[in-house]
Nucleic acid binder design. Structure first.
Lengths: 362, 362
DNA sequence: CACAGTACTGGAAAGCATTCCGGACCCTCG
DNA sequence: CGAGGGTCCGGAATGCTTTCCAGTACTGTG
């Protein structure tokens, strides 16, 4: 003990630079392993391991010896060996449809922050909204032995995906998805219905009687929820008709759907755009046809994006907090990883009206 | 061959006794390992390995036997063991300042696509634009033994980061960053200068004589390049003065800088916003002060975002292709991983004028 | 004083696959 | 018919750590 104390305390840190040449053996040759540390300290590898892992059965003398050797050699444990041995990779996979979508990017950010705080790293895969890639990615991630999965699937109905998930033992959290499986999954869901209801109520109050929803892919929960909510809401408002155009979360779909709607015999007086890419398509078509908002048609969009607030007229929207969703999803996963049973969290959506919602024409 | 086939399964494994209890669970609980495959096929593990790795010294009979066993057991190699043994993780880390920035998200998308095509997975870390997190993340990723690093650092000047990188042996690619180090790094750079020059030329042609640049963090290349380019461009236009406000890539900075500029004794006739968050701040302040674009002031922004095209008036911008940047960065990294020396790629920026650029007032 | 109990420590197996080496077997050429 | 070669395969070492088990030494107690 006194022996250790007698050593110049600075050695470990300050020597980083000084040590470099001295280190040549360790730096140039392969980095020191636990064996070298044990040798240098004159103890068994198991003791080194115990010291490093904070095991209680370690004398302070032993701890000092080992730590000295660790410092001297600049030893860093090999995580790969740890992973292999312990079976835990401290890594989670995030299967996301499209990271370039700001909504998903925010979710990823929230998840990564929470995960990293807990010592986990995040492996990211993009399915570019192709259903068949979901399953591929899930399998790939499992081969890498991720401890958990965050799933923002691009298609909930793909047999392949469902199959991969059924035979999966990996703790998983669904991000606003709902699978037709018996297995219990944790999930973070958004309460789309409430936002849609509020929007519809507002539109009806303004006098609208034909409300269209340009929705995204019908193979994911948000779209289904919104559609159901719209139908639901309209039951309370007799005489108001709803029109739904679901398709894909793309600008192209937004554009095409809008064109169809406008060309219909009874075009809508208000449109709800189900997502930010769709919004772009809707706006594009509206602009191309010189349809004025809100004079000719009212508009509501789902999920805020940075620049939306400068749009003229200001856009009414149904929002949610994506960062929070990411945080919650990661939290649920960490819970599961520490033994808790699957759980579902529902996060709110809020409708914010704005100039883009006006009285219908006539 | 029949001789070998006729042999009884070897008894040498004293551990058979130990295996027996596992036997029942082997099917459901623990996935089969290479040992089980070898046993079932009645061959050595080395043979299984050879078959699976496509080694040439394998008879077709052997291949068939092994593959049959693999199928029967649903064997999947344990990547952790492979990683430990081979030292290659087929994983690259991406240190990004802020994934919620659409520009970076697009870059990440491009990189991930390219990387995955080559069999690599991507570990993502967000530094939330905090310089000290960069170094932490680099070290974390290296502990995980990533094969390579994609670096979109939030601060090129941090000693800690520079230090971590200096002692790093990991192949790395800088994404629009420029480090004051001797080490040779691969890099994908954007030619910001050309875009700025075009923008300035256009503004000057319109009659502007006070051009301000609201730039982001001066600790990263894009900002420095833009600032230099502006000064450079103004040398060609005597009588035109430039004003620079660098700070951070945030809405707050954009707003504050704009306020200062407008409050100055000689406010600019045109503003170039150096990034999308900054743009939001600039627009915010302009709107709050009822400064009209382009009647009172002209505006140019850097780096397109989805909704920008609907802004009224249409925004002039200096663009680049982020997806392409991601692709290129990943490509450069893969090159290095296959032995090529570091290399630098320069990608263009293009200026697109629009209604937000008009004649200066008076 | 002896035995139980405590506090550590060392040894070795386990986790899973890759790879070097030596050897068995068969063919061919001298 | 034997030597030289080529083709394949099994054995064992290797990568690095964790963990179970057994053993040592010493303290407390009846």
């Amino acid at each position: 003990m006194s022996g250790a104390a007698a050593r110049r305390p600075k050695v470990p840190k300050a020597s980083n630079a000084v040590l470099t040449p001295l280190n040549s053996a360790a730096t140039l040759t392969d980095r020191a392993g636990m064996r070298e540390v044990a040798e240098r300290a004159g103890v068994a590898m198991s003791s080194v391991s115990r010291v490093l892992s904070g095991h209680p059965d370690v004398s302070s003398a032993m701890r000092a010896r080992v730590m000295a050797a660790v410092e001297a050699l600049g030893y860093e444990p090999n995580m790969l060996a740890q992973m292999l041995r312990s079976g835990a990779t401290h890594t989670v996979g995030f299967v996301v449809g499209d990271i370039s979508n700001p909504l998903l990017a925010q979710i990823a950010l929230g998840a990564e922050v929470r995960l990293r705080a807990a010592g986990y790293a995040m492996l990211l895969t993009n399915s570019v909204n192709e259903a068949n890639l979901d399953a591929t990615h899930i399998r790939l991630l499992q081969q890498r032995r991720v401890d958990g999965l965050l799933l923002s699937l691009s298609d909930e109905t793909s047999d392949e995906t469902l199959d991969a998930l059924t035979r999966s033992m990996t703790p998983s959290v669904l991000v606003d998805r709902d699978l037709p499986l018996d297995e219990p999954f944790s999930a973070v869901l958004s309460d789309h219905a409430s936002g849609i209801h509020q929007a519809v109520d507002r539109l009806v109050a303004l006098g609208h009687d034909r409300i269209a929803l340009v929705a995204g892919s019908p193979h994911v929960r948000p779209t289904r929820e919104r559609i159901n909510a719209l139908e639901d809401a309209l039951e309370n408002h007799l005489g108001v008709v709803g029109q739904v155009r679901s398709g894909a979360f793309t600008e192209a779909h937004g554009k095409a759907a809008t064109r169809e709607l406008l060309a219909g015999r009874r075009p809508p007086t208000a449109i709800i755009a189900g997502g930010n890419q769709i919004l772009v398509g809707v706006l594009d078509e509206l602009g191309a046809r010189k349809v004025r908002v809100p004079a000719d048609i009212s508009l509501v969009t789902c999920d805020d994006v940075p620049l939306a607030k400068f749009f003229t007229p200001t856009l009414a929207m149904i929002n949610r907090d994506p960062y929070e969703i990411g945080l919650a999803a990661a939290g649920l996963l960490l819970d599961q990883l520490s033994g808790h049973p699957p759980e579902t969290v529902i996060l709110p959506t809020t409708f914010v009206t704005a100039a883009s919602c006006g009285r219908p024409p006539r």
